[in-house]
Structure formats: structure tokens, C-alpha cells
Simulated assay, not measured.
Amino acid sequence: MRLSHRLAVSALSLVSAASLVACGGASDSTSSSTPTSEARDASTASGGTAVTGEITVFAAASLKGAYQDIAEAFEQANPDASVSFDFQGSQDLVSNLSEGSAADVLATADTQTMDDAAGQNLVGEQREFATNVLSILVPAGNPGGITGFDESLNAEGVDLTVCNSQAPCGHATEEMERATGVTLDPDSEESKVSDVRGKVESGQAEAGIVYTTDAVASTGSAGTEEITIPDLGIINHDPIAMTAAAANSEGAQAFIDFVLSDQGQEILRGYGFGAPAGSASETPADAESAEPAASETPADAESAESAESETPADAESTEPTESAQAESGTESG
């Protein structure tokens, strides 16, 4: 179930041993709570002082809930800074940047769209901060009888909504069609995943292909249901980058660092996002359980030594066998 705005921030604050107070979901909310040392470290500029000024972030629609929570925590750590957002389909954000819209940070829902921005020299270095996979969202009770990413999505009487082919969620849907051999016949195609989700929540569609993060958020707030599907290796990698024309470069870098920090990552996980590829995604328990296998105990070492070293008695006991084999003319192998 999706962590509530208040619960997500409060839980993280306990871990950091400081209080963070949620303020109802607004991205420009501030608080008088004392910033945690982790938040200060993750969100300060290279000079070591808290950043100031407005930071404009263009972010994919699928990031809205998580990024609003991240912005709230970031602002608490930097009371003289404010974060404003434009949440749209990733392709529309890149188009807006290309047409001259001002932003300090770009966060997209796939690498293909970010690479498009990089190809136009609109952004600098990109860093992956999360992963996401597809799922199916249906109204409560699953009136369309959807059973998975299969022909039930094309059944008579099922209004299906998906992202269009220009959107990252549309790219992933097309890859899923190729992987499953199922060709969808949607009734509507949307430019951003939040619109797909909205049509299911409003009862205008019996099924929508969304990200698992949207399904988690919707089932926790709108009474919908999620039909999980195997990812079949189709995973969206979400990158973030400072824009080439950032007006507040220090603030932009501080926000990016905060997203990548343990606190930012914990918020993203609370919304159902996966860890970025190549990160230390192991849980502490996984790491601990792997240590005994990797480390050799003294007893293990002794046992290995005794197995490797051959006693004179052992050598003598093998000689007759070898001799007998030679006499009988048998070969091993």
C-alpha cells in the first residue's frame, strides 16, 4: 500500500533522528522543523552552506507524489530554497525545454527521452535514480474481467486506455506487446500516464496500462485494483540531470543529490519505485546473510587445510589402488 504523505516523511525522520512534518502534499510547503544532518549533507552546495532561491524541476508525471514529498523534505533542510514543479509527459518536458522553457532540473521516466534532451544539448550529466515497471489498473471489482497482459484486454466491452507511443509508458507498452505477442486495440491513447490512471479511476475505462507506482498510488487512494504482470525484462530506468541553462545551478545540484541520497531513495521506494540499476540495492539483511558465505571461519579454514593436505597414511592407501588399476589396464574418465 502506498505510504501516506505524512507517514513517509515521518518514518524517514525517525530514521534520521529528527522531526519532519508533512504539510498536505504541496510541493512549496515549508516547516520550522530542524533539518536532519543527512538532509543538510545531501542538499547543500559544494560550498558547504544551505542552498537558496527557487529551483524549477521538470519531472515526469509518474514522479509527482514522490517528488512532492522529496521537495518537502528538501525545503525543510533548506528553508531559504523553494522547489516548483511542472509534471508532464517526459516527451512534452523535453519539447518545452527545446522551445525555451526555463528549468533547472529535468527528471524523465526513461533514458530514451533524456538521451533526446542530451542530443539537443539541453542537459548535462545524467544520473539514474529509480526504475519502474508496467502494471494494469482496473476499477474496483475488475468489471472487465482482466486476467493479465493478454487478449482479455481486447475483449468486447472492455474500454482500454494506454499511453501514446511518444510517452515513455507508451514505449514500454509497445515492448510488452512484442514480448507477449499480444497486439492491443486501445480505445484511447494518452500523452502521460497520470491521464491513463485518471480514466480508470473515473470509470471511463475498464483497464489502463500504467506503471506499478501509479497502481500503488491509485489502489491506496481511489479504490481501484492492480493486476500485476511479469516485467519480462521491460524496465524503465529513470534519469535526472541539471539543465544546460539552469538559473540556479547550485540549487539544481543540491536537489539532484537529495534525490540520490538515502532519504530521497527511501521516499521513492515508499511509492513503489525500484532501486537504480547498479546501485547497492541489497537490503541490510541480504548483505548480512551473504557475509557468512563469503567469509571463511577458522573452522572452515582448518577443515579446508585438512582436506587439501594428504597424510602419509592417505598416500599409502591410494598407492595400492593406483597399482591395481595399472595392472588391470583400466582408465579413469
Rank of each mutant, 00 (worst) to 15 (best):
A71G: 10
D314K: 03
E190I: 02
V9I: 11
E226S: 14
R197T: 06
A215Y: 07
T36G: 15
Q112W: 13
G270M: 01
Y67P: 05
T224Q: 15
S309W: 12
L106P: 03
V21L: 15
P35H: 08
F149S: 14
L106T: 05
S194K: 13
S98H: 07
Q120W: 00
D231I: 10
R2N: 07
S332T: 00
G47F: 04
G233L: 01
E156R: 04
V105G: 07
T49E: 07
L63Y: 03
G333L: 05
T36W: 09
S95M: 04
P139A: 10
Q126C: 03
P168C: 10
I146G: 08
E296T: 13
E282C: 14
A287D: 11
V133A: 09
T212H: 13
V193A: 14
V83Q: 05
T213N: 06
Q112H: 03
P168I: 12
P35M: 02
G48A: 02
F85P: 02
A215K: 11
G89V: 06
A217N: 06
G141A: 09
R269D: 05
V105C: 12
Q91D: 09
G24P: 03
S84P: 08
S261R: 01
T183Y: 01
N132T: 07
G274F: 06
E305D: 11
T219C: 15
V210G: 13
K64M: 09
R197V: 06
E128F: 06
G181M: 10
P230W: 09
T44W: 01
P143L: 11
G170R: 06
E177M: 15
E302C: 09
F74Q: 03
A280E: 14
A294W: 11
E296G: 07
P276D: 03
L7R: 03
P276H: 07
P312D: 08
E250G: 01
P298V: 05
L122S: 05
S46P: 00
E38Q: 14
A61D: 10
L134P: 11
G157I: 09
Q91N: 09
G100A: 00
L232S: 13
C169E: 05
Y211V: 02
G333N: 05
A287V: 08
G198Y: 10
S165V: 11
C163L: 12
A245K: 04
L134I: 15
A109G: 07
D238M: 14
T108H: 07
S27L: 10
M114R: 08
A285K: 15
V9F: 07
G251I: 07
G145P: 07
V123P: 12
A102M: 02
S218P: 02
A252R: 14
S328W: 04
E319W: 09
E54H: 08
G148F: 08
T52S: 15
L97Q: 13
Q88R: 04
R6T: 06
T111F: 14
A304N: 03
G208Q: 10
A179M: 02
S309I: 04
R269P: 00
A8D: 01
T228L: 10
G198R: 13
T131Q: 14
D110R: 04
S306D: 03
E225D: 08
A155P: 06
G65M: 02
L160R: 09
A22H: 07
S281A: 15
G144V: 14
F129G: 06
R127V: 11
S249H: 02
A285E: 12
R6D: 12
T44A: 13
G274I: 02
L260K: 05
Q253I: 00
T44R: 15
E189W: 11
G124A: 03
